Amino acid sequence: MQPPILIQGLKRLEYRGGYDSFGIATVGSAIEVYKKTGRISDGEAGAAHLTGSTGIGHTRWATHGEPNDLNAHPHTDCSGRIAVVHNGGVIENYGELKRQLEERGHTFRSETDTEVIAHLIEEHYDGDLLAAVNATLPPAPGGLVCRPRDRGGYAANRRRPRREPARLASGMPRSSPPRT
Rank of each mutant, 00 (worst) to 15 (best):
M1V: 09
M1A: 10
M1K: 12
Q2K: 14
I5K: 03
L6V: 09
I7H: 05
Q8H: 11
R12Q: 14
R16E: 10
G17A: 11
G17C: 03
G17N: 10
G18Q: 09
G18E: 09
G18A: 09
Y19A: 13
D20H: 12
S21Y: 08
S21W: 08
A25G: 06
A25S: 09
A25H: 04
T26S: 11
V27S: 15
S29N: 14
V33W: 07
Y34Q: 06
K35R: 15
T37V: 12
T37F: 09
T37K: 14
G38D: 05
G38N: 07
D42S: 14
D42F: 01
G43Q: 07
E44C: 03
E44I: 02
G46E: 01
G46D: 06
G46I: 07
G46H: 05
G46A: 01
A47K: 00
A47V: 00
H49D: 04
T51W: 00
G52W: 06
I56H: 04
I56N: 00
G57M: 04
G57C: 02
G57S: 05
T63Q: 07
T63P: 01
T63C: 06
H64F: 07
G65M: 07
E66Q: 08
E66I: 06
E66S: 10
N68C: 15
D69L: 01
N71G: 00
P74A: 05
P74V: 00
P74D: 01
T76E: 02
D77T: 02
V85K: 00
N87R: 10
G88L: 14
G88N: 07
G89C: 04
G89E: 05
G89F: 05
I91C: 00
I91V: 15
E92G: 14
N93V: 08
N93M: 13
L97T: 09
R99N: 09
Q100A: 15
E102T: 15
E102K: 13
G105H: 06
H106V: 07
H106S: 01
H106M: 09
F108E: 08
E111F: 04
E111W: 08
T112E: 02
T114C: 12
T114A: 13
A118F: 11
H119Q: 11
H119Y: 11
H119V: 13
L120D: 01
I121W: 07
I121K: 07
E122F: 08
H124T: 03
Y125F: 15
D126G: 08
G127N: 10
D128Y: 03
L129P: 00
L129V: 10
L129S: 01
L130P: 02
A131M: 00
A132N: 04
N134K: 12
A135M: 07
A135D: 13
T136Y: 04
A140N: 13
A140H: 03
G142S: 15
G143S: 15
V145R: 00
V145P: 01
R149L: 14
D150H: 11
R151D: 13
R151Q: 14
R151I: 10
R151P: 01
Y154L: 11
Y154Q: 11
A156G: 13
N157P: 01
N157E: 12
R159S: 12
R160I: 13
P161Y: 06
R163D: 11
R163F: 14
R163I: 05
E164A: 14
E164Q: 13
E164V: 14
P165A: 12
A166D: 03
R167I: 13
R167W: 12
A169N: 14
A169C: 07
A169T: 15
G171F: 05
M172Y: 08
P177L: 08
R179L: 10
T180K: 14
